[in-house]
Design a protein around this nucleic acid. Structure first.
Length: 462
DNA sequence: TGAAATGTTGGGGCG
DNA sequence: ACGCCCCAACATTTC
């Protein structure tokens, strides 16, 4: 008879849906027979519920993870609810010896996990957390003054001078365990997929969530990085980005894996090294956003630069005109072809080219004078790759109220941007072939934006 | 990871 | 030959 082991080790999955380079998973499997749990917690204090596109991604990512873990003999249980309650149930039902997880760095998530540790220790269950998501812990990579970095360039320089630990292997397969006593909710019952209307056709055609597809995409990126990443990653018409952002968001790939692979190009051809460095900067930017969020928990909701509290941004509820502008922006009916193409790409595929994100965001917060949080919430709901740190830090960056933000007066001209970055108009033709009338006069709204900025400055104490 | 206004320079047309 | 103007092509400044 095959030995049937009752798992005594439990590992929690959250934003780290992978089997390779997963410190908590590896440690758990080293410790003994392991069962994995994914807890969908959108109810704990301060947790922001996932957006609709994220729900879509999560559904398929969990199916993929269940498959990958299954091949290692590790069952994956699905539970939904307040983490503390769910873990209390799990502890009662299975009496695990230890529960492990990779750390999260969001403010509310940290509170949940800290509380969890206390709760488990009180129950006599070992609780271990690991560093799996960021290249460095935010409390470890600091300025000379022992504070978090507020400016990207010195952050990046500091990061480059550090050792990043190499990625870890996947655990080896464990002996079969008796799954009959394990209780999992049914993923289908969570209602993560859209029904009426089913808006996810474009997402299905664009993406394959999960670790195997992410690895495959990584291989493609590494093969082509020698050529044109440096020249093409800024070109929405050329599809020159890595498109790995969802894989990083959901942890199908870790930053360590990407960093490690890219480091191999350092001594190769100059072109390859240049491309690898450019992509590394993007990975570093993600870390920077999380560090920023860690050191500034108010990042998602408050202007980092407080003088922007006096900026006269509108909200949709303020006036029918503002509401109308927001609706047109969301629907991709602004009349500016590159913006409308970007917003259409976002809606149809759950993703938008980064250059176009900047242009669409600039139009909303500057030309349309809408608060960045309105745009941030739309991106949160529609992007498959949105995380709280990157999304909010980058919106604040565009809006000018971020720590290391673009100067406010850097206002994109969407028509010029289209000429520069979509010279043949093929990106526009693909996503927004029908032109509509502009919702705003570019020249005038630009002048008004600068006037608002000056007005805000005039309100500051001298 | 701007854009527009303003300043400067230099070539060519022309009287 | 020279001054003058125009203006493109940059460069600098300002927002």
């Amino acid at each position: 008879m095959t030995p049937r082991l009752q798992p005594r080790q439990m590992v929690l999955f959250r934003d780290d849906l992978r089997t390779m380079d997963n410190p908590a998973l590896l440690a758990s499997c080293d410790a003994g027979s392991t069962v994995a749990v994914f807890i969908l917690d959108e109810q704990s204090q301060g947790i922001r519920p996932l957006g609709a596109a994220a729900h879509w991604w999560l559904h398929y990512a969990l199916i993929s993870l269940e498959d990958s873990l299954g091949k290692l003999g590790i069952p994956l249980l699905f539970r939904r609810g307040i983490t503390a309650d769910v873990v209390a149930d799990l502890s009662r039902d299975y009496a695990p010896q230890a529960i492990r997880w990779n750390r999260r760095y969001g403010h509310a998530e940290r509170a949940v996990d800290a509380q969890l540790k206390v709760q488990l220790q009180a129950a006599g269950i070992d609780a271990h957390s690991y560093a799996g998501s960021l290249l460095h812990e935010p409390w470890e990579l600091l300025t000379k003054n022992q504070t978090g970095f507020k400016v990207f360039t010195p952050f990046y320089n500091a990061l480059r001078n550090t050792e990043v630990r190499p990625p870890l292997p996947a655990p080896s397969a464990q002996a079969p365990i008796d799954g009959t006593s394990l209780h999992s909710e049914k993923l289908e019952d969570w209602g993560l997929l859209p029904t009426t209307p089913d808006w996810a056709a474009g997402l299905r055609n664009t993406w394959t969530p999960g670790e195997p597809a992410a690895r495959q995409r990584l291989d493609e990126v590494l093969e082509s990085i020698t050529g044109n990443y440096v020249n093409h990653h800024d070109r929405p018409d050329l599809d020159g980005t890595s498109a790995l952002s969802p894989a990083l968001r959901w942890g199908h790939l870790s930053a360590h894996q990407l960093w490690d692979e890219l480091s191999r190009f350092a001594v190769d051809s100059p072109a390859a090294a240049e491309g690898a460095t450019a992509l590394r900067r993007q990975v570093a930017w993600r870390d920077f956003c999380w560090h920023l969020y860690y050191h500034h928990p108010q990042l998602p909701t408050e202007n980092l630069r407080k003088e922007f509290d006096d900026f006269a941004w509108s909200w949709p509820k303020d006036s029918p005109e503002a509401a109308h502008l927001v609706t047109n922006w969301q629907r991709g009916s602004t009349g500016f072809s590159l913006v409308d193409a970007g917003m259409a790409q976002l809606w149809h595929t759950g993703w938008m080219h980064n250059r176009v994100r900047m242009v669409t965001a600039s139009l909303l917060v500057k030309n349309l004078a809408i608060h960045w949080r309105v745009g941030e919430q739309w991106f949160w709901d529609t992007l498959v790759d949105a995380d709280l740190a990157s999304n909010t830090a980058n919106w604040q960056w565009v809006a000018g109220c971020g720590a290391d933000a673009a100067p406010y007066f850097r206002i994109f001209n969407p028509e010029l941007q289209a000429k520069k970055f979509d010279p043949q108009g093929s990106y526009v033709a693909k996503y927004a072939p029908l032109a509509v009338a502009p919702v705003v006069d570019l020249k005038q709204s630009r002048v008004e934006a600068l006037e608002s900025y000056n007005h805000m400055k005039s309100l500051q104490p001298r």
